[in-house]
Amino acid sequence: MSIAQESIIKKPIKKRFKRTPYLLVLPGIGWLFLFFLFPLSTLLATSLQKPAGLSPDDGYLPAFKVSNYTDALAEYYPQFFRAFLYSGIASVVCLLLAYPIAYYMAFRARKYRNLMLVLIVAPFFASFLLRTNAWKTILSGDGLVVSVLNSFNLLPQERILNTSLAVIAGLVYNFLPFMILPLYTSLEKIDPRLIEAAGDLYSPPSQRFWKVVWPLSLPGVISGTLLTFIPASGDYINAELLGSIKDKMIGNVIQSQFIDLRDYPTASALSFTFMAVILVMIYLYIRKAGTDDLV
């Protein structure tokens, strides 16, 4: 009886609203098709073009020049490698810094939780270029940080600016909030009673963490890592402002090929290879986590 009733009530509603979700997503998905997916395909087309003349002003002609890829990779594989190395290290450091503070906010901070959230987000409003530039002042040779570290002989090169250390530190600084926020969101969802229950069952603190908290926070760990690693690997601001010529990453190459040298095919080939690597990583992630928790 009750089941029959439910189906009577539910059916007309379901039928009437079937179009709604599609109408709701239409503008957004349409937009992303037009200005995200379609441009990626033009990028692919551009990456196979050949120059029409000797100078970039002559433009490029449609072609199927696969050697654009092999040439570009042969020349720029160190920058590729460096981008993934630096952003990999930066993501690990971010995770190590972000987990304790996210944990503290989720389980301990109570009164100060919102204040801490605001302080983590507020830097976004002061220009990120200016903040990265401020690190130049902080880390400069006559600054406090360098002189203290030098007096303990902790710096092999006696400076921080224009070293890979500065670039990685800059990446950590810039992308730390993107690690803290998803971690906090997933930690905050954990019912503290689960941890108490584990304690009641005589599980020691370390076990309580590794068997209860850590597994439940994994979605946050994964999305935080993706949200730091991917933008960091494409970043070129930190390498440009804080690093030396030997610290250039793939982002620097793509930017200068596109904007300064106007070698669009090479730049597109590099971008497309880069995107392919990232798509593989996302594919592996989705296979593990499914599409439900993506956004």
Binding site: F36, L37, L40, L43, G251, I254, Q255, S271, T291, D292
Partner: peptide, 21 residues
């Protein structure tokens, strides 16, 4: 949700470059 996620997972250089292309 995949379509929404992809731009988040795309480095900014590539977003900028592909639109420029």
């Amino acid at each position: 949700s995949l379509m929404v996620f992809l731009p988040l997972a795309t480095p900014e250089v590539i977003l900028g470059a592909s639109l420029l292309a």
